[in-house]
């Protein structure tokens, strides 16, 4: 019997469509489904442009949802709110404020009735948690990229969110800092039991940080391709994870999936004196017909001789 905690976050058939230049809806994300247990960490991986961040911003309420819904703790959410905190690749700290003041800004919004002393304690606690106990009164310009990202993490977690959304949070950091911050976040998540969605490109990061990995298909019309449950114990120990007998099998599974999604077809087409009806014939089964045709036309236009044969590399898509 499933408990409410088993379905703490429910992302149901999330769709995002933008109008294309022809006035037709271009569907970027097409029916993203995900159910998360309370306290679970799920990584979303997929190729650039597949719609991972679009999903995250829709869940965060920063991007409108075309269709579908997001519910947290049984309540459907609309728009942004302090129940969902986001950490982006760049921490975007206010440069005229110290680390402490940056964190306090959000804490004031979430604890409007708390005393000054209480708010101060919250800020200091979370800044200490991320290893900035001795640097909390520094300005962003006085801090490294890694330290600034620590402030961003403290700022998000100090809000005591029900859900934490991390959008490639370590993408701009060197690998040592990245590993340090992964451990910082995992330590906090284990203690605070915050349900977390992590967007990442990094297969090893996904394996180390999450309980499950959600693999997205390549867009357009991206959705969940498959989920991978990870057998590694929490709290995580990097050495144990790397030495787990399944680590490289699971890693191979993720890498193979990404390679499979990246498959392209090489089509050789004859270009008959400047017309593009060959391309139309090739693309007639595709739903995104016009965009595809223009993409192909542009490539063929680049061929030196219009009557010659051009090799055109195009996404295989669903045709």
């Amino acid at each position: 019997m499933a408990s409410p905690d088993d379905r703490f976050v429910e992302i149901f058939r999330l769709i995002k469509a933008y109008p294309n230049p022809y006035g037709e809806p271009a569907v970027v994300v097409d029916g993203f489904n995900l159910i998360m247990r309370r306290g679970e960490v799920v990584s979303v991986i997929g190729h650039s442009g597949c719609g991972k961040s679009t999903v995250l911003t829709m869940v965060a309420g920063l991007n409108s949802i075309t269709q579908g819904s997001v519910a947290i703790a049984g309540r459907e959410v609309e728009g942004a709110g302090p129940d969902r905190a986001v950490v982006f690749q760049s921490p975007c700290l206010l440069p005229w404020m110290t680390a402490y003041q940056n964190v306090l800004l959000g804490v004031k919004q979430v604890y409007p009735h708390g005393s000054k002393q209480q708010r101060r304690e919250i800020c200091e606690h979370y800044l200490a948690e991320v290893g900035l106990a001795d640097a909390m009164h520094r300005y962003p310009r006085e801090m490294s990229g890694g330290m600034q990202q620590r402030v961003g993490i403290a700022r998000a977690i100090a809000l005591k969110p029900q859900m934490l959304l991390l959008d490639e949070p370590f993408g701009r950091l060197d690998s040592l800092t990245r590993m340090e911050l992964q451990d910082v976040i995992l330590r906090i998540l284990d203690r605070e039991r915050i349900t977390t969605l992590v967007i990442t490109h990094d297969v090893d990061e996904a394996l180390y940080m999450s309980d499950r990995v959600c693999m997205m298909t390549t867009g357009p019309r991206a959705k969940v391709g498959q989920m991978l449950d990870l057998p590694f114990a929490r709290p995580r120990d990097r050495k144990e994870v790397l030495e787990h007998f399944l680590y490289y099998e699971l890693r191979g599974c993720l890498v193979s999936f990404l390679e499979q999604q990246d498959k392209r077809t090489f089509k050789t087409v004859a270009v008959p004196s400047g017309t593009d009806h060959t391309i139309e014939a090739m693309s007639e089964t595709r739903s995104d017909f016009r965009a595809w045709r223009h993409e192909a036309s542009d490539l063929i236009a680049g061929a030196a001789d219009a009557a010659s044969t051009a090799t055109v590399e195009l996404m295989a898509g669903k045709n």
């Binding site: 029916g31 489904n33 995900l34 499950r212 959705k223 969940v224 391709g225 498959q226 989920m227 991978l228 449950d229 990870l230 057998p231 399944l246 699971l250 599974c253």
Partner: peptide, 8 residues
Amino acid sequence: YVKFPRGS
């Protein structure tokens, strides 16, 4: 270890 959501 693999799971498939509805439609996937």
